[in-house]
Design a protein around this nucleic acid. Structure first.
Lengths: 196, 196
DNA sequence: CCTGTTTTGTATTGATCTGTCCAAAATTAG
DNA sequence: CTAATTTTGGACAGATCAATACAAAACAGG
């Protein structure tokens, strides 16, 4: 029987994900990935095939972790719609608090990848589109509920409000990477909530 | 007396700027820059010193062109504040219409650079911070005027509204790069304007 | 037309990049 | 303990990277 791997695959994937997240795809070398994961080249190529394949898996893992967490908040039908949206913004800000390098945020891997790769990496673009659709659908459902129940007074179509909120969140991520502090991000979120 | 350059420096800078804009800093090779500008390596290094120096000049040029254009709209005191903000959003969307590659936008060089480089390129980060401050100041002044004149009813502090609007614009850029079409971008802008 | 200066094209450097190769080490089943 | 299989480390291959060297071409002033 085969010799078992001496490392945990998911743990290695997390380390790779974090490296791509912090430095981007192009600026991350395979040696960076070796250092971050603690693995040798052979182990990496043996289990993940190529840098690009590893990146795709890291991206999928990121979206699974974050989007699933966000959908859990958004789909909680025991709470009023507007509260759920507020919870989501709080979670986004909480994430920004946790993921800082110096005085700046490291952003969000999906936003970073959209900016860096979506225009020339068809596979990454497709993964991102799928993830985005999941989030848009969840937003739309919450907003629809909120409008029905009256805690969202804006008459703008749910799909448009959903697009608006995802754009604001992306903008907050960029602002964080540009050096905006946490109170500033909270103010942006609060203003966005005011639009509902 | 010296032999004159056989090319227009600003024209070459524009071509380089556009290449960095469309592909990012890391993904742009010096050979890409030669092809885009039509120059040989020697000419490029002779006039721009290095890839990084050329990038900084391209970034400065980009901010000069776009931010100056935006400030012209925002500072036009002959028009009501809210109209000026609407004009700005229209201009942003107009820019997105013009700068598309296939079905996606190529974003905004300042947003792209914030995402790709701000965290590890101190010089780029400083250029971006200066440019952002100019825009924030202009936004703040318009908003203050609008609140005084009554066409902006939100009581949120001008500085916070300014941050909100720049975040929304960054988010629109990201959305465009993610494949959002023009009507979608218009809906986002219109919702943002509703928050005022 | 010549002289001095700069630009420009080409070849090249040395570093770094992704990915492969191969043999040694490690592990389990029998 | 042996055989079969996989992982692992380190060296290596080939391509590409940013940047330089250098000589020839191009130009302006006298």
């Amino acid at each position: 029987m085969p010799r078992p791997k001496a490392f945990d695959e998911d743990q290695a994937l997390d380390a790779a994900m974090r490296t791509f997240w912090a430095n981007g795809y192009e600026a991350t070398s395979t040696e960076d990935l070796c250092r971050a994961t603690g693995l040798g080249r052979s182990s990496i190529y043996n289990t993940f095939t190529s840098k690009h394949e590893l990146f795709k898996r890291a991206l999928v893992r990121y979206t699974e972790l974050t989007t699933t967490g966000q959908l859990t908040l958004l789909d909680d039908e025991t709470r009023p719609a507007k509260d759920r949206l507020r919870d989501l913004f709080d979670a986004v800000i909480e994430g920004e608090v946790e993921n800082r390098r110096g005085e700046r945020g490291i952003g969000c891997l999906t936003v970073n990848t959209t900016v860096e790769l979506a225009g020339r990496d068809h596979e990454a673009a497709e993964l991102l589109a799928r993830d985005q659709q999941r989030r848009l659908d969840a937003f739309e459902a919450v907003i629809r509920t909120g409008q029905r129940d009256g805690d969202i007074t804006s008459a703008t179509p749910p799909a448009e409000l959903a697009r608006f909120l995802t754009a604001v969140i992306a903008g907050m991520r960029v602002a964080g990477q540009g050096g905006a502090d946490i109170p500033t991000l909270k103010a942006i979120a609060s203003t966005a909530m005011g639009a509902l």
